[in-house]
């Protein structure tokens, strides 16, 4: 069993939003029309936004401003508030500590979207749609089983979806290792956002392995979690800027 974790070094992040695009392509997240985005219906499993996102008097005004950019995937909390409130177990933590979402089970009550203090969960207000030929270029990877529909599989209307740490990639590398008759290596598994990161600001690995990069970085004095006070114990670790 692993404890998959992501480290994001804000010193290296250039806020290019490459992670957001990679995520969208990898996970078949539908784009929405501008008027819908205006209503807050854009899907951004991996969002990049200025911090603090809601400016206060302390943020200051240009040019005397104190702000930074923050890439934000799902925190994959060890103590996830979303899982606690789900009435049907549509969202759950798997053996590796990844918080997953089963689209075939979700009843669309949106308790988890309200429960998540990071607002990382998204709802399909309409049937997902793709412009023109884009439908032909969807990622064919799927995590599908009896009563299970996860990962990049195209979502039905009115269910909740979220970042899965590219769970299908983990399954693929496991399958490959099995096929080749060898042990699975932790460095084979990398989510799309980490793979694509322009500034090489993202690191991914197993926190249970004391020698992994993420384990070393987690001990860095710059390391912190988002909303640390909420007791959610996120597995996404940030390295402070500056």
């Amino acid at each position: 069993m692993a404890k998959w974790s992501m480290v994001i070094d804000l010193d290296k992040c250039v806020a290019c939003q490459g992670c957001s695009i990679a995520c969208r392509a990898e996970n078949n997240t539908p784009a929405v029309a501008p008027d819908q985005a205006e209503m807050g219906r854009a899907m951004r499993w991996n969002d990049v936004f200025p911090m603090p996102i809601n400016p206060t008097e302390d943020t200051g005004e240009y040019p005397n401003v104190r702000a930074e950019y923050l890439p934000r995937p799902c925190m994959h909390c060890e103590n996830p508030p979303c899982i606690k409130v789900c009435p049907v177990g549509a969202t759950f933590k798997d053996a590796d500590g990844i918080v997953e979402q089963n689209y075939a089970r979700c009843i669309g009550c949106r308790f988890c979207t309200v429960g998540c203090p990071y607002s990382v969960r998204y709802f399909n207000w309409y049937e997902p749609k793709w412009e023109g030929d884009m439908i032909l270029h969807l990622n064919p990877d799927q995590v599908v089983g009896p009563g299970v529909l996860e990962g990049p599989a195209v979502r039905p209307r009115s269910v909740v979806e979220k970042c899965t740490f590219c769970i299908h990639r983990l399954q693929k590398v496991h399958a490959q290792a099995d096929a080749e008759g060898r042990a699975f290596r932790a460095d084979e598994y990398v989510p799309a956002c980490v793979q694509t990161c322009t500034g090489k600001a993202r690191f991914f690995g197993d926190l249970d392995d004391p020698e992994s990069t993420v384990s070393h970085l987690a001990k860095n004095t710059r390391a912190f979690h988002l909303l640390e006070d909420e007791g959610t114990h996120p597995k996404v670790i940030y390295l402070r800027e500056g």
């Binding site: 606690k84 409130v85 789900c86 009435p87 049907v88 177990g89 089970r105 979700c106 009843i107 669309g108 009550c109 949106r110 308790f111 709802f123 399909n124 209307r157 009115s158 269910v159």
Partner: peptide, 19 residues
């Protein structure tokens, strides 16, 4: 969102959820 899945609350209901 999915009233058609209302029976899931009985079939897969989690007693931990306030709903």
């Amino acid at each position: 969102g999915r009233p058609d899945r209302l029976p899931f609350t009985l079939i897969y209901g989690r007693l931990q959820s306030p709903i």
